[in-house]
Structure formats: structure tokens, C-alpha cells
Amino acid sequence: MPYEWLPPQDDTQRLHLWPYRSLPRRGMVWFIGATAGLLLVPLSAVIGSPVLWGLLPFLLLALLSIWWALERSYRDAEIVEDLTLTADQVTLVRHGPRGKRQDWQANTHWVQVERHETGGPVKHYLTLRGGPREVELGAFLTEDERLALEWDLRQRLRAMR
């Protein structure tokens, strides 16, 4: 699961969330290598002819475009959410893509976990309410993971109160 409860320190509990990556970096290297190898197949028929120089720039551009798109996808998915629970305060820090940081704090006693069946950007949308504004939690998780997180978070908040 792309979230984990870190070992408790004193009376503090920490939840660490991150998006799931279906293609790890090592897989990306293999994919780019296999794509380059497959692009060489049509070039082998024109080695030694001027057609090679006509095709080569377009094939290299295609390969660089695939690499750029995958790198952009990795940068956009650099999201990490850290939720800290103490007896008197809940703190959510979201580190978004390209270094964007958002903080939220509320009194533990007033925090409520809410699941929105519809109306959110995803099904079973989770939010935390109880501070100056309502914030989303784990929008990048799957439906089942959000349901498990909701149950787990409700139990831990109940235990903290």
C-alpha cells in the first residue's frame, strides 16, 4: 500500500502517503532501451543509404519525446503527504510537485474524517475537517486504499481523543 504508519514516537503518530508508481525507474530504463532497440529494426534496412539520415532525426525525436513524457510524469507524481497525530493537534503537510508545500493544522478533538461518495474528483474522496478549511487526504490512492485508510484513521483518531 502506498501509505504507512511510521513507528510511534512518544504520543505522536505519523502517517506517510505517496502515489503508487506502476513503472519504477529501473523499468523506465528497460522500456527506453527496448524502444530504442525496436526503433533500430527499420533503420537496419537502410544502413548505408541516404534514407538513414532522413529517418534518424525523427526516430531520435520520438525516443526523446517518450523519455521526456515519462520524466514529466515522474516529476508530476512527486507528491508526499505527512499526517501527524498528537493528543491536541493534527497536522497535514503536503509536498506537491515542483516543491509546492501546503500545511494544515487542527485540534484533534474537532477533526472529522469525511468520505464523499460522489461530488469529489475521485470516488470515496477523503477529507479532513475541523480547522480553518477542509483538506483532501490521499486523492492519489485507489478506492480500496482510501476505504482502508478511512477506517484506520478513524480508529487512530478515536484512540487519541
Rank of each mutant, 00 (worst) to 15 (best):
Glu4Gln: 15
Leu83Trp: 12
Ala77Gln: 14
Thr86Glu: 09
Pro132Ala: 10
Arg72Phe: 08
Arg72Gly: 07
Pro42Met: 07
Gly48Lys: 04
Trp30Val: 03
Leu23Ala: 09
Pro121Ala: 12
Val80Cys: 08
Val135His: 04
Gln89Ile: 03
Leu149Glu: 03
Thr86Leu: 02
Thr91Leu: 09
Gly48His: 13
Glu71Leu: 10
Asp82Phe: 00
Gly138Thr: 13
Ala45Phe: 15
Arg94Ala: 13
Arg94Pro: 03
Arg129Asn: 04
Thr35Lys: 02
Trp67Gly: 07
Ala87Ser: 15
Leu141Ser: 05
Gln155His: 13
His116Gln: 09
Leu63Ser: 14
Val80Trp: 07
Glu150Thr: 03
Ala106Lys: 07
Trp53Cys: 07
Gln13Thr: 14
Asp76Ala: 08
Ala106Glu: 04
Ala139Asn: 11
Tyr20His: 15
Gln13Met: 08
Gly37Thr: 03
Leu59Ala: 12
Pro8Gly: 04
Pro132Ser: 13
Gln102Leu: 14
Arg25Gly: 10
Leu6Pro: 10
Val111Tyr: 07
Leu128Ser: 09
Leu85Glu: 01
Thr118Val: 07
Gly120Lys: 05
Ala34Arg: 01
Met160Ser: 15
Asp10Tyr: 02
Leu126Glu: 09
Ser65His: 12
Leu141Asn: 12
Val113Leu: 02
Leu60Lys: 05
Pro57Met: 08
Leu85Arg: 05
Asp144Cys: 03
Leu55Met: 13
Phe31Pro: 01
Gly99His: 12
Val90Met: 03
Tyr125Asp: 12
Gly37Asp: 06
Arg158Ser: 10
Trp151Glu: 09
Gly54Trp: 12
Ala159Arg: 02
Val113Phe: 05
